[in-house]
Every structure is written in C-alpha cells, then in structure tokens.
C-alpha cells in the first residue's frame, strides 16, 4: 500500500484564464452548475451543459485523461445507480425476466442519471483541479463571511480546513513510519479477511492518534506564540479581488443557470 499516492482534492498548477479566476467566482460558478444540472430535463439542456463543461475543461488544459482517471473511484456507484434506474422505473415494459423489468422510461432515466452524476463529478473536479487548496479555503471563508453576523464561526472553520490540509502529508508520512515500525515487530497488515485486517489497524491507529494530539497541542502553543487570537482584527497578505472577468463570468453563469432552469421547466 503506497500511502503517498493518496491525494485529496488534487490541484494542478497552471496559468490559464480558469486558474486566474477568483476562487469565489469558481465556487459560485460550480454552485450554479450543480443547480442547473439538477433542473436540466432533456437532451437540449444537457447538451448545453455538456458544452459549457467541455469548454471549461478545454480552457483549463487539465486534459481529458486526468479527468477520466479521477472517475475511477466512482464507477461502482454510477453502475449501481444506473442499474437501479434501469430496472426499477415504472413505465412501458420492453423486456421482462424474473423480478427485473426493463422499461423505455428506465433506459432514459438510467442514461440521464449516469450523465448527471458524471457531469457533477467532472464539474467539481474542475474546481479543485484549478484552485489551490489555500485559495479554496480563502474563497469559502470570504463567501461565508456574512454568516459571521449570525455567529457562525466562519474564520475558525476555514482555519481548521487549512490546517487539516497542511497536516495531511505530515500524517501520511507518520502513518508510513508507524506501519514500518509495527511491521518490523511482526505486525501483519496485508493478509486475513476484512475483520482481521480491521483489527490489524489498531496498533497503527492508536499511536497515530496519540501523536496527532501531541502535534495539535504543540501547534496550538506555536500559534499562540505567533499572536494568533482568532479572526478578529486579522488581515491577509493575499487579498481576494474580483476582476472584470470575474464579474462577467458571474453574471453570464447566473444567466445560463436561469436559462437552463427555464428550459428545463418547459421540458426541453
């Protein structure tokens, strides 16, 4: 098991127009996109959505291969959803055997559900592929800013997110180290059934948790030494700024989202 291969919300640095957009613009755009995707009804609207997505991918230069590779973990979910839709949608039956009935409506439903899930995942991937985690957290903090008025600890949540992201590689490294240490003492992580494997993780998780708590304690002291006292009166080195391109994209995206919803309403 190569733990170092695990990536979360992988980011591909680049300097395309999509990379340069303000993270808030991209988050808003992704939200419009998700809403539009669920209100889209039929071929025309889906084709338009697909066109938007494809041009986004093309501009971002992420590459179709990377996108397809990202799909791997969700294939199973997509297949199961498609099969359920295929056989359990009531309508005009075409084929029937044992407890399964294939209907015309089912084929359409399965097709659209598959397209919908795949496009949903691709769209959100495009966001994380083109936005660095730190900008993403900054963007979320800024977008959720108004919630501070109703006492939602927005700054604290964003801080927790960015510290979690910072410590993922450190903890992965540590896991590798503990695994080697336990293997050297005869621990077996590879063989056995599911339950035996789960039990084998105990000598890995206990030291990992203890060390994570110790790290958290030291980090808290180090943060206090650097005058951290919550979000109040805090400034940022990098300030997010909407450019003219951002406004254009936000307005166009919103119009597109409304158009798709209206078209969906008329069954297009």
């Amino acid at each position: 098991m190569a733990l170092k291969d695990i990536t979360l919300g992988q980011y591909f640095p680049g300097n395309t127009p999509i990379h340069r957009l303000d993270p808030r613009t991209k988050i808003l755009l992704t939200l419009y996109y998700i809403v539009a995707l669920f209100t889209a009804e039929f071929l025309l609207t889906y084709a338009l959505m697909f066109l938007a997505l494809a041009s986004g991918i093309a501009i971002s230069k992420v590459g179709a291969k990377t996108i397809l590779r990202g799909m791997k973990p969700v294939v199973l979910i997509v297949v199961i959803t498609a099969l359920l839709n295929l056989f359990y949608t009531p309508g005009t039956p075409i084929l029937s055997f044992w407890i399964f009935t294939l209907t015309v409506e089912g084929i359409w439903a399965a097709f659209f559900m598959t397209v919908r899930i795949l496009m949903l995942i691709t769209g959100t991937f495009l966001l994380t592929y083109t936005t660095s985690p730190i900008l993403l957290t900054d963007g979320i903090e800024s977008l959720l800013g108004p919630l501070k008025k109703v006492r939602v600890p927005v700054h604290e949540l964003a801080m927790m997110m960015s510290i979690a992201l910072r410590f993922i590689p450190t903890l992965i490294e540590e896991t590798d180290k503990i695994m080697s240490a336990q293997k050297a003492r005869g621990a077996d992580f590879e063989t056995g059934n599911l339950f035996q494997k789960a039990r084998a993780l105990v000598p890995l998780l206990v030291p990992l948790f203890i060390s994570a708590f110790r790290r958290a304690d030291e980090l808290a002291v180090a943060m206090e030494c650097r005058c951290y006292h919550g979000g109040e009166g805090r400034t940022r080195m990098r300030q997010l700024k909407y450019t003219r391109a951002d406004w254009a994209v936000i307005v166009l995206g919103l119009l597109g989202c409304i158009a798709i919803t209206v078209m969906g309403h008329f069954g297009l």
Binding site: P133, I134, S162, L165, R166, L219, M223, R226, M237
Partner: peptide, 19 residues
C-alpha cells in the same frame, strides 16, 4: 513540523503579521 501552519512557505511566514 508542529510550528508550520500553512501549506505554502510564504503563507506560513505571513501568519504572525496577519494575526
């Protein structure tokens, strides 16, 4: 490892003045 807060060097150095 337990003193560095951000996942980019310059962002980390900026942490104290930001505070």
């Amino acid at each position: 490892d337990n003193q560095i807060v951000a996942n980019v060097v310059e962002e980390d150095v900026a942490f104290a003045p930001e505070n």
